[in-house]
Computed example of a mutant assay.
Amino acid sequence: MKELFGTGVALVTPFNEDNTVDFQGLERLVNFQIDNGVNYLVVLGTTGEPATLTAEEKEQVKATIIKVNNGRLPLVIGIGGNNTMNVVNEIKTSDLSAFCAILSVSPYYNKPTQEGIYQHFKAISEASPLPVILYNVPGRTGRNFEPKTILRLANDFENIVAVKEAAGDMLQAMRIIQNKPADFMVISGDDMIALPMVLAGGVGVISVIGQGLPKDFSAMIQYGLDKNIDEANKLQYKIMDSIDYIFEECNPSGIKALLNKLNVCKNNVRLPLVAASFELQQKIDNFVENY
């Protein structure tokens, strides 16, 4: 799974003013990533607002990205949820031929026990024809995916190949790296500590800011993988403020404000999210102008 080394980006879904999907913006977004050195693309991750897309729109978004990408970069598909049977059914009934792996978020809202999380991903593993990336993001799910559960799954199922670790806890990430099977990959899901995680033994990142600053962010992660710490740190400190800004209100409103400034796509989101405030858009605009 060398496809998962380096910088993956969790693509947004651009929208027009009338709330329809902006497929021209999506095409520009995909090409912007490819032209600037990103290593792989994550389709319909939570940053893509799949919770507010219809089934038809999801298929159209997937088809557009597959067509524009045209085999140039590996693609990862987001399939997750808090109803295990529905997730399993989606995996079994979807055409996954264009994708190299599934990214599946830990169940949200239900707040299952660690055993419940284990059984959820056991069912996904048994249903999936593709490698599976676990996704821990307790700030959104309400339940931490504990290292012992991640490691248990990593040891029990050959097709569970990685975790996107987004707890924002370096010690937790290091515990997973310390005790993981040799071929199991730890991928940062937190942009601010992606470089420290790579330097500690992670293989890269699935990023939000990476799609707004793809050239420098991808270079930073590659410097980290190459253990070129001085050059990596220069880019880390150059980029840092933008990471604060894009998460200041909500994701993906912040990153869409940055992409709007870059004329890649508009800053529209679907309710219950709202677009970045005027004040935040101004901060992001100033950052980009002085970058």
Rank of each mutant, 00 (worst) to 15 (best):
E289M: 09
A63I: 02
L195A: 14
I246C: 01
A123S: 15
D285V: 00
K215D: 09
G81R: 12
Y135E: 09
G25C: 01
G201V: 08
K238G: 02
A154F: 07
Q114P: 06
D190W: 07
L258R: 11
G168D: 12
K215Q: 14
D35R: 13
R72H: 06
V38R: 12
N179R: 13
E90P: 02
A232H: 04
G6H: 04
L271G: 04
P214W: 02
A51L: 13
D226Q: 15
G202P: 13
T93K: 14
T84H: 04
E17H: 09
C100W: 00
E158Q: 13
I255D: 06
Y245E: 09
A101K: 14
Y223F: 15
Y223I: 00
M85S: 13
K62E: 05
A123R: 14
E49Y: 05
L213S: 11
A166V: 08
E59F: 01
E289L: 12
G201Q: 09
I79W: 03
V43E: 01
F15E: 06
L280I: 09
I239P: 12
L153F: 02
N110E: 03
N39W: 04
F278G: 00
Q222M: 09
E146P: 00
L262P: 01
N39I: 02
L4P: 13
T52P: 14
F184S: 03
V163C: 02
L11V: 02
V43L: 04
A63G: 00
F217N: 10
E231L: 13
G6K: 03
F184M: 00
F278I: 11
F23P: 09
G78C: 14
G8W: 03
Y118C: 05
V198T: 13
S253H: 09
E146T: 15
N251I: 15
P196H: 10
P129M: 10
P131A: 04
E248Q: 13
V208A: 04
L280F: 05
N136W: 07
V87F: 01
D18V: 08
K67C: 00
E17M: 07
S188H: 11
I209Y: 01
A55E: 15
N39P: 02
G204I: 03
P272C: 05
V21P: 10
D241M: 01
E126N: 15
P112F: 04
N136A: 07
L171R: 15
S218R: 12
G224F: 05
T52Y: 11
N19C: 03
I243W: 07
